[in-house]
Computed example of a mutant assay.
Amino acid sequence: MSGPLAGVKVVDLTTVVVGPICTRTLADQGAEVIKVEAPGGDILRYLAAGSRTPAMSGKFINFNRNKRSIGLDFKQPEGLAAMKALIAEADVFVSNVRPSGLVRAGLDFASLQAANPRLIHCSILAFGRGGRYFNRPAYDPVIQSMSGVAATFERATGEPRFVPMVMTDHTTGLIAAQSIGFALYRREKTGLGEAIEVPMFENMASFVMTEHLGAATFEPPEGPTGDGRLLSPYYRPLPTKDGYITAHPNNNAQAFAFLDAIGRPELKEDPRFCSPIARTHHAAEFFELRCEALKAKTTAEWVEIFTAADVPVAPYSTIDDLLDDPHLQEVGFWNFDEHPTEGRIRRTSVANRFSGGMREETLPAPQLGRNTREVLAELGWDEARIAAMLDSGAAFEGVK
């Protein structure tokens, strides 16, 4: 195993998306990740259509590669003891369990620190400590609704809606992985671990408001919140004669080339469009102009014209189009593996590259409890103790 995180051991007590995307990111960079699952397993095993075998949905497979799975029942003393023994040997512990649940189980940072002072303890929360929402449960739609993500659609289209991806989970999970990297770097300098709390609500409120605080940055405000360009109903792929296209001129050279291409060179002298600040103040008019002009030709015609003029342009791609995108094919984005239970599967590659080395092997997303025996054996527990745990249900293999 290679990669920048080779040698880092991670105990992963997360479910659904926000935690698993964090730990998959660590695993993809070479960390050894042990996914600890309670009876029934991660609910994501069941939350997507298209599975071939029970508890192995396509979505679960995509978020849990490069991990091993151990099944433990924390309600039984031996199950909880195994969990604490794993964490005592780990570099990183990641959970998206509510803080009150961690405290009850003795898995909070204060309880674990004495046994492992080098531990990086990362708790992904719905809401940050100190506020009235702390310890409430939440999923991605709740955070999209509260953080202003859904409100951006209302400002743009008149109706609030969710981004049709679990975007707040993805974003927060990646921030958690980044934070763990920061903490590991500090530990190299100090020798000490630390607790990290990564709240979904505050991170996404920051994400939205960094973009849309706008004139309310100033106190008192110099104008309304919101970036009018991004909240325009025309900020989307625009219709052509036969489909959709995104043409996005920004600086003067691009904007003037765009105006030449659509046959409106006189607008380069128009005070509404003659500079970046003018086009910002008149974004609604500039965007509407673009929308109307692009209807005159086909997508392929516009792509050829704008590419020749060095105007940023892209044809609109469907989700299915990405499966055959030539650039993704050329950079090796898609990989095909033989999964031990699911047969031939398609997976994405790691997009980022490190000249010092990447993870060389890829572990298939594990069946529930597939690695229970081997992980317990690595703790030094003998066959008799492991067998007793399996008999009692304190540890388990497979769906129960």
Rank of each mutant, 00 (worst) to 15 (best):
G19V: 04
G19W: 12
I21A: 12
I21N: 07
T25P: 05
D28A: 14
G30D: 03
G30L: 08
A31T: 02
E32S: 01
I34L: 13
I34E: 02
I34F: 03
E37K: 11
A38P: 12
G40P: 11
G41H: 14
G41M: 11
G41V: 02
D42H: 03
I43S: 13
I43R: 01
L44D: 11
L44G: 04
R45M: 14
Y46M: 14
Y46D: 15
Y46R: 13
L47M: 07
L47S: 11
A48D: 13
G50L: 13
G50T: 11
R52M: 03
R52K: 15
T53E: 15
P54W: 09
A55I: 13
S57C: 01
K59C: 04
I61V: 14
N62R: 02
N62S: 15
R65K: 06
N66P: 09
N66V: 01
N66D: 15
K67C: 05
K67D: 10
R68L: 05
R68K: 15
G71N: 04
G71K: 07
D73N: 15
D73H: 02
F74V: 05
Q76I: 04
E78G: 06
G79K: 08
G79P: 04
G79R: 12
L80Q: 14
A85D: 03
L86F: 11
L86E: 09
A88T: 05
E89F: 08
A90D: 05
A90G: 06
D91A: 08
D91I: 13
V92S: 10
V92T: 07
F93A: 12
V94D: 11
V97Y: 05
R98I: 00
P99G: 01
G101L: 10
V103W: 00
A105Q: 07
F109H: 14
S111G: 10
S111D: 13
S111C: 08
A114P: 03
A114Q: 13
A115L: 12
P117D: 10
P117I: 10
R118T: 03
L119G: 10
A126N: 05
F127N: 03
G128R: 01
G130L: 07
Y133R: 14
F134M: 00
F134G: 13
P137Q: 02
D140T: 06
I143C: 03
S145Q: 03
S147R: 03
S147L: 12
G148L: 09
G148K: 06
G148R: 01
V149N: 08
V149H: 12
V149W: 08
A151R: 11
A151S: 11
F153L: 09
E154A: 15
R155T: 07
A156L: 01
A156I: 01
G158T: 04
G158C: 09
